[in-house]
Design a protein around this nucleic acid. Structure first.
Lengths: 211, 211
DNA sequence: ATCTATACCGACCAGATGGTATGCGCGCAA
DNA sequence: TTGCGCGCATACCATCTGGTCGGTATAGAT
């Protein structure tokens, strides 16, 4: 999830800067612990600008989740794990890609919407729903490849491609929780390795059938 | 995670009531959004009592995590998934047990320390470490059974019993994130079903070898 | 040139927040 | 019975919080 380098404030830019600042700060401190003043300071704007663009603090939470969905959608669409001809390779490529972008400090690779929804799910339903749209919308992008891999293998274990896609997102979110707790990105990588193993066991056609 | 019914305040009880109130409120609202006054109100005490027992708000976060570890340890030790003779059955029984206690409203079955650590990992290292001790200490209780099941099956895929135990905790934490996002406990159950399937594929001796 | 809509500024506010200072009653040892 | 420490209550405080409001600057339409 690379971020553009800081640019000097320019007229018409404040909304985007506020959104970026909010995203960064919420990933570091969480939603509740991030104050409007903090966001303004980091965005190099004032409260006047903030409340011109966002009616409430909650509103920037919703907007940040929406923005997260847009940017991550573009980011994953551009990735090369879609290239392989075999649908299972595309699914495994996705997991490998997720693994490869676990790098740097923890707030740099963890998920904005996963962090937010854990905190605000009960009190701020609008933010929760925006986070859910991002998570489950992203999960849905895996469905077709999973379904194709299921067909290729001929599996039917009473579970769905959509459900497995959701589970994959769950494992990734859980991996981030472990990394935060241990303060160690390796915890997340380890979990993604197990996820990869699961998908292979579940979806790889039996050995010898292709040789 | 059953909770005792509310009792009228009694002298000498305040600390325990504060801890229980903090636990409940943090599970609902998160750590930052839970105020000291909220905790006191729910515990039917005053700020005087609060700061008599806890030096700071952070201190009750640490104490709540420690208390969580103690109570959950006792809770899981008493469960019957330890009974089967086959170690794999004990591991699968654990997952089934975790699945069975997903019931009621979301804050009633989600994990205090998982919720807290996602929020405060960066700013409150003492709370983070207390949460980590709870999560990874609990994971460690699965290690022996996993190792025994690995031996029985004779697996060696370059991963460890400890790592798989951590992954199991990760999947459970991720399942809670999904349930919060979708506002639906079924999301968590679905993920635990996949976890069960993974463990069977990974650790069940090949079919026919026992019949 | 003027009008208007939008972007933005910065002082201000009421209430909340974590934390403190002080006092008071109960149990217990001397 | 007195003295003392512990558990807890009440009143209070400095600071921070989200949010408001009047005002200014700029760009484009007429």
């Amino acid at each position: 999830m690379p971020r553009p380098t800081k640019i000097a404030p320019e007229r018409g830019d404040a909304r985007a800067r506020l959104l970026e600042a909010a995203t960064d700060l919420i990933r570091i401190h969480g939603f509740s612990a991030t104050t409007v003043d903090d966001i303004c300071r980091r965005a190099q704007t004032t409260k006047g600008a903030f409340f011109h663009h966002f009616a409430t603090k909650d509103a920037i939470g919703v907007a940040a989740a929406d923005n997260w969905q847009r940017t991550t959608t573009a980011f994953f669409e551009a990735a090369s794990y879609h290239d392989p001809a075999d649908p299972l390779d595309r699914v495994l490529g996705y997991v490998e890609f997720r693994r490869s972008i676990i790098a740097g400090a923890i707030p740099e690779f963890t998920c904005l919407v996963g962090t937010m929804v854990g905190e605000v799910h009960h009190d701020r339903p609008e933010i929760r729903d925006a986070c859910a749209a991002s998570i489950f919308g992203h999960a849905a992008t895996l469905e077709a490849d999973i379904a194709a891999a299921m067909t290729a293998r001929g599996v039917d274990g009473g579970w769905s491609a959509a459900g497995l896609a959701r589970h994959i997102q769950g494992v990734i979110q859980g991996a981030f929780v472990l990394a935060k707790a241990a303060d160690d990105p390796d915890m997340a990588r380890e979990s993604l390795d197990h996820l990869d193993r699961y998908l292979v066991l579940l979806l790889r056609p039996a050995a010898g059938s292709a040789a």
